[in-house]
Design a protein around this nucleic acid. Sequence first.
DNA 1: GTGAAAGCGCTAACAG
DNA 2: CTGTTAGCGCTTTCAC
Lengths: 340, 340
Amino acid sequence: MQVTIYDIARKANVSIATVSRVLNDQPRVAAKTRERVLEVAADLGYQPHSFAQNLARRQSNLVSVVVPTMASHFFMEVLRGVQDGLAGSGHDILVHLARTPADAAAQLDRALRRGRSAGVLVVSAPPPDAFVERLRRSRAAVVLIDCQRNGFDSIAVDNVGGGEMAVDHLVEVGCRRIALVMASENTAPSRDRRTGYLRAIEKHGLAYDENLVRVCVGPEDGFTESAGYDAMSEILATTPRPDGVFATSDVQAIGALRAIETAGLGVPDDVRVIGYDDIPMLQYAGVSTMRQPMYRIGRLGAARLLAKIDDRNLPIDGSVYAPELVVRSTTVIDEGAWVA
Amino acid sequence: MQVTIYDIARKANVSIATVSRVLNDQPRVAAKTRERVLEVAADLGYQPHSFAQNLARRQSNLVSVVVPTMASHFFMEVLRGVQDGLAGSGHDILVHLARTPADAAAQLDRALRRGRSAGVLVVSAPPPDAFVERLRRSRAAVVLIDCQRNGFDSIAVDNVGGGEMAVDHLVEVGCRRIALVMASENTAPSRDRRTGYLRAIEKHGLAYDENLVRVCVGPEDGFTESAGYDAMSEILATTPRPDGVFATSDVQAIGALRAIETAGLGVPDDVRVIGYDDIPMLQYAGVSTMRQPMYRIGRLGAARLLAKIDDRNLPIDGSVYAPELVVRSTTVIDEGAWVA
DNA sequence: GTGAAAGCGCTAACAG
DNA sequence: CTGTTAGCGCTTTCAC
C-alpha cells in the first residue's frame, strides 16, 4: 500500500501530529526530531495525499481555467502564463474547454462545484448573467482574463482602444474607406473591437458605410480564415470599394487577404489590411496587426488569482493593458517583406 | 456554511448513509425515501465535495495530461478530443505544460503524486527511462498519445509511415533529389519521420545526400517557421539543388516555402514542398501535407485511459493510426490554389 | 516539544 | 429498507 504519515510516525517513533508539523514546516518541533522525521519520510518516499490535505485544511490546491476552444494559439500562450504565474504556489490547473457560450456555462458550473477549485480563471468570455450571483456566492476566487465585468477582478486588453488604434493606423497611411471584418457578435472582444472601429471612423470624420461592415458567421464564432474570406468577398462587391480593412482577428485577416488577391487587387496598393492578435504565422506572412500580450495577461491573471485566494477581501481590480501596433507590409510598402 | 449530506439527512429525517445511497443511485432504498432525499438535496442546492468523495472511495476523478508546449494547434485538438472522450465519466482534466524535456519530467512527477490522478495521458513525448519504473509502480493508469514505448498503452500516429508516404508522394510527382527539413532530434515524431524519409529514399533507389538534410535548432525544438527558413536556405545552397522537400512540420514547411521564394525559385515548378500536421492555415496556404487525426487520437486516448482505470489488468494495446496525404498546390500544379 | 483526539465530508461494511 | 459505525489521510486544537 501507499506510505502515509502513520508509517512515518511508526518508523520515527513519534506521533502523526509531529510528523504533520515537520512536513508542514511548523515551528514547535525539536531539531533532532525534525531531522529524523524528514529522513524517514525521504526514505519511505512519502508523498502527501493532496485530497486528504485539502479536505483537512478545508481548501483546494486546484485552479480552474474556463476557456473557449477557438483561438488555440491565444489560449496556449495564456495557459503558459497561468502556469508560470502559479508556479511555486502548489496549485495545479484544471482546464475546462467550452465549445459554445452555452457550453461555457456548463463548464463554469463544473469549475464551481463545491470545494473543487480555490480559484477560477475565466478566459475571453465574461460570465453570463445567470452566473454572476453564483460566482459571488462561491468560495472560489474569480478573475476574468481577456474580458471584463462589473464587480469582478480582471486582466484585460483594451479591445476598444486596440480597434481604434488599428483604424487610426489605416487612416494614417491614407485609407478613407475602411472596411470591418468582424467575428460573431456573441464574443465580447469582437464587439469591443468594432466599437473601437466606429469610434475611429467618427473621430476622423469618415463616413460610416454599413456595406463596409460584415459580421462573420460559422463555426468558432467566425474566427476562421474562410469566414474572413467570405466576408471580404462580399465587401469587395461594394462600390466604391474599400481602400483598407480591419479584421478583428488574424485568421480572418488572412482570409480577407486571399479574397483581395482573388479579386485581382493588390495589397497594400489597392487595399491595406490589418488584423488582430499577432499569431506567429503573421510575422512571416508580413501582415500588420495588433499584438496582444497573451502570456503576460495569463501570468498576471494567475498572480492576481493567488492574491485573491489568499485574501478574498482584496478590493476589486481591473487592469487593462494596451495592445501594440505591429506594422508590416500589408499596410505600408516595404520591399523586404515576404508577401507583396 | 456549505451544505453537506448531514444537512440533507436532518431535513429528510434519514441517516447520512441513506442520503449517500440515494445520491449514488444505489438500489436498496424505498422509492418514497429516495424521492424525499432527492427533493431536499435539490432544495438545498447540494453539491458533493469531490475531495471527500475521492478520499472515501480511495480513487480520483482527475486525469492528468502532460504535454510539450510547442504545437499549440495540435495540443488544442488533442485536448478537445480528450475532453470529449472523458465526457460523462465525471473526470476533470489537469493540464501540465512542459517547456523542455527536463521540464516534462518535472511535470510528470507532479502528475504522478500519490492519489492525485486516476490516470495520466502523456502526449508527444515518451516517458524518459527514469520514469518507466515510477510509472509502472504508480496507481495511475497511463496511456501514451502520439508516442510509443514498450510496455505502455498508446494511441499513436504512424510517423515513420507518414514520412514515407510524404516522400513517396514527392517521388510520384517526379522529384528525384528530395531534401529533408527536420525538427530537433530530441523529439520522437521528428526522428520517426526522418526514418520514413530514409526508408522511402532507399526504396525508390534515390541517392542519399546528407547535404539535403538539415536538422532545425532553436526554440520549440525547431518546430518554427524561421527554423524551417534557415534550414531550407542552407539546403538550397547545395548543388545540384533539390527538386522537392519534406518538412517534418507545417510551420517548418511555411519557412521552407519562404526560403524557396526568396531564392527566386518557384513552387511547385522548381521545388515541390510537403509538410506535416495539416494545421488550418495550410489549407489556405495551399500546402500539401500529411494530416494527423489529432482530435481522434485525443478522444481514443481518453477512452483507452478510462478503460484502463476501470480495469488495470487490461492487456497493453498500442494502436497506430495512419496519417492521410493531403495534396495541394505545393506538390502538384493546381491553378485554383491560392499560393502559386 | 509532543501526543491524544476530534474532525474535514463522504463511502461502505455490518447489523438490524 | 435503514441506521450505526468505522474509516479515507491529513490538520489542528488542546492538554501535558
